[in-house]
Design a protein around this nucleic acid. Sequence first.
DNA 1: TATTTTTGCGACACTTGTGTCGTTAATTTG
DNA 2: CAAATTAACGACACAAGTGTCGCAAAAATA
Lengths: 202, 202
Amino acid sequence: MGKKGEETKKRIRQKALSLFARKGFKSVTMKDICIETGLSRGGLYRYYESTHQIFSEIMDVLMNAQDDELAAKMEKEVPAPAILDEILGRYEKEMLDGSGSLSIAILEFYSEKQSDGRSDDGGKDGGGDSKLFRQYICSKSMWDNFISYGVKRGEFKNIDREEIIDLILFSYQGVRMFSTIMPIDKQIPRRIISHIKKALLV
Amino acid sequence: MGKKGEETKKRIRQKALSLFARKGFKSVTMKDICIETGLSRGGLYRYYESTHQIFSEIMDVLMNAQDDELAAKMEKEVPAPAILDEILGRYEKEMLDGSGSLSIAILEFYSEKQSDGRSDDGGKDGGGDSKLFRQYICSKSMWDNFISYGVKRGEFKNIDREEIIDLILFSYQGVRMFSTIMPIDKQIPRRIISHIKKALLV
DNA sequence: TATTTTTGCGACACTTGTGTCGTTAATTTG
DNA sequence: CAAATTAACGACACAAGTGTCGCAAAAATA
């Protein structure tokens, strides 16, 4: 694979991503991606065999972009409530604007992998769900660390951590999901966040 | 349409429902439904023109099966905590077993309607999302009534109602969604429910 | 039970997407 | 700048789904 080829692959992933965000996973065909990228069938198939493969590679790239920032802030002794505000602010934004629009594609992608038994990803990927599950575990431990930090500083209540973490993670996912298919009132994310803050802050 | 015809339609809806629950919305074809029902192409098309139409009718039937029960209980002056336990118990069950498996199909169905502009349901249905939205409003007012009832009886705290309701509804949806594609630990629904109870009960 | 209406079949023509292959055009490399 | 390698094209054969239509069998009706 030469230099030109790498660029083309990248272009394919970018264009495909915008398609997945708009139409979900199952509705995007290799033909769509041909049209979007301007490549011919033969041209596209040189790089990717299926939409599965493309989506999977996109996910790998997206997932490796997290929490170093948070760790850095805790290092610097930034007050926990300030960090909380920032994280929740970002969540609020993601719940409202369409940036959650990949959610549906992700759901479709992994649900498809489960429903039919074929796992034809060459054994490289240990099952579709495990990747998602890993991400859940990862977010969870991030929150756990962060809440401990807040409690140690006397800024957060010492409540059952797992309870509030699950609530945060799943309500966030729930809203994100529905925001892509239903008009979501701005008050909804705001109320959820307000509840979380009250539950955490002393 | 004769008596036989009505029975056939019902059979089609039943078989199609099981397909949608297993494979989501987009992956089910008219051909699949032919096979599942044992009908021929011509036979099936006599009753339904598309999977859209079938799914839409199924939704209509499913949505009109709610909260009369709850109203009856409030009438009978059943203690609010007992009612709460029952509702949340049902939620817990739905989060765990695969009975949330229609969630993905619902999401796919409505997201498809949004992404492409064609609204070919003959004007009878005022847009895909409004139906979902109506359901959200409906669940919301049900909870609102119920919490008022509990507060009046001095059994629930008088907290911000909208806040807790959004949290309940969306975390529930979030878990349901993910439970269909990821192994969900039994503790997760339990923790979410425990948090809700603590927030509500005096 | 004769007649009409409803139900159901399956072949047919059409559309859309898949995956391959020989060939040409463009890059890289020595 | 010539040779070798890589990238891209687009026709082709195939697979899967759609929607229709004429016709026969089965129900309903009178």
